[in-house]
Design a protein around this nucleic acid. Structure first.
Lengths: 241, 241
DNA sequence: CAATTTACCTAACGGTGTTTATTTAGGGAG
DNA sequence: CTCCCTAAATAAACACCGTTAGGTAAATTG
């Protein structure tokens, strides 16, 4: 509708314009797929360099060499970009978790390796971790993170769900072998996840805190958790496992 | 300096104006202290009602009945407002922690009560908790949260530091009685804090996750942690403690 | 070659935090 | 009781933000 001419008149001259060579427009058209991945790549880069809230549509567009409005040709909104970044994050997490667990044979070692991998992965991608696990987001984005354990009506399992299932599987193996005092796999997996998340998120957000030694806190956390997990007489409780 | 007249011309008419009765301005002047607490109160209220990122200077100002610029007479910027909210948060946390610990006599129970109180307090103030423990902030605000364990050159201990010291004290008592396998009080306190934080923050941010039962996860987490904490033969390990 | 689709741009909307210059209320001094 | 001065409050603007409407032109399709 546009309201009216509105006398905007004396605005700044070259507002946006993606840095053209000379006088000719020479607007370059790219295939949608190419642009899409350009945009995601730029967003990802800015993202881990400058932090989450510093990533604006305008900055992304400038980086790619188009105007901000052009992005909306390829993504519905800003969250849609974050969504694919989140999917990538979960994809890599899934891989890190799976290979860590696969690298061990003994169930307990598998579980511990998984927990370690989670923590290390999170700390290696602090900005993405913050986005995925520490930021309030809309339902749409949430859907990519959520872990619908009831399979009802969910199109296909999100990568987040798959990642959680890997952890859950490692816990299940330990439980099935009767190694724990506790029986609820789900509950255990949630508690272990929470503990790992606590360390990662606290180290990320409060890295100015005078931590005695982050590595040692991680070790201690894992030690406490696993020691508490096992039966009294379990031979694995003594000595490092 | 104002650059130039700049031809702003045809702007909307009544832009702000804090809802006057009639034609008369009748601008009410308040004492600085009164206004300050008005502003903080309004910010706090909006804050827990609508969420952190929905609190704008304009909304706060509207709530108080002044224009947004007037706030800057009383606070340097938005973070300065958040800072006093954070201080309040820590004040209440300190109280909750202290009274929980004081309500028990046995060191282990003290520590456990403290952890429980921390978790419950955090869950009861999700928005503030998110602000304090999950949001990246400037150094200024950080200073109010930080826990300088080295006493060097810190004007006076922040309330955050005091709160951590309370936890630290409860841990120290357990360590001093030789009840744990571990000797580093600081390390233990950090690990316990991280575990508690993990649960609170995960429940706050991912409350759409199909948690088996939040209360049970909390119980399990605490159980695992404390069971892992104690010596093998410790009588308190068996049965609830 | 003509028609259609669509990637892109320009311009704007309403919102944000913050700053500048100006008005005006209220208290103290003469 | 007036004058004046301090400072609380204002109006207007700045530069940014996410998003949208409408037009232009390039590529693709018939």
């Amino acid at each position: 509708m546009k309201r009216s001419p509105s006398a905007g008149a004396a605005k700044a001259k070259g507002e946006d314009a993606p840095a053209q060579g000379q006088g000719r427009p020479a607007r370059r058209r790219l295939s949608p797929d190419e642009r899409r991945s350009q945009i995601v790549a730029a967003a990802k880069a800015l993202f881990s360099e400058e932090g989450i809230d510093q990533v604006s549509m305008r900055k992304i567009a400038r980086e790619v060499g188009i105007t901000q409005a052009a992005i909306y040709q390829h993504f519905e909104n800003k969250e849609a970009i974050l969504f694919v970044i989140i999917e990538d994050f979960f994809g890599d997490l899934l891989e890190a978790l799976s290979s860590a667990i696969a690298s061990e044979v003994e169930p307990l070692r598998k579980l511990r390796a998984g927990m370690r991998a989670y923590i290390e992965y999170g700390l290696s991608r602090p900005e993405a971790y913050r986005l995925v696990f520490m930021t309030p987001m809309s339902g749409l984005v949430r859907a990519g993170v959520a872990v619908p354990r009831t399979a009802e009506a969910t199109l296909q399992p999100s990568k987040g769900a798959l990642a959680f299932n890997v952890l859950d599987g490692a816990v299940r193996e330990v439980v099935n072998r009767g190694m724990t005092r506790h029986s609820s796999t789900d509950l255990l997996a949630e508690a272990i996840w929470a503990a790992g998340h606590g360390i990662v998120s606290l180290l990320i957000t409060h890295n100015e805190f005078p931590w005695t030694d982050p590595a040692k806190v991680i070790d201690l956390q894992i030690d406490l958790l696993f020691r508490g997990l096992l039966h009294e007489g379990c031979p694995m409780r003594t000595g490092m496992f």
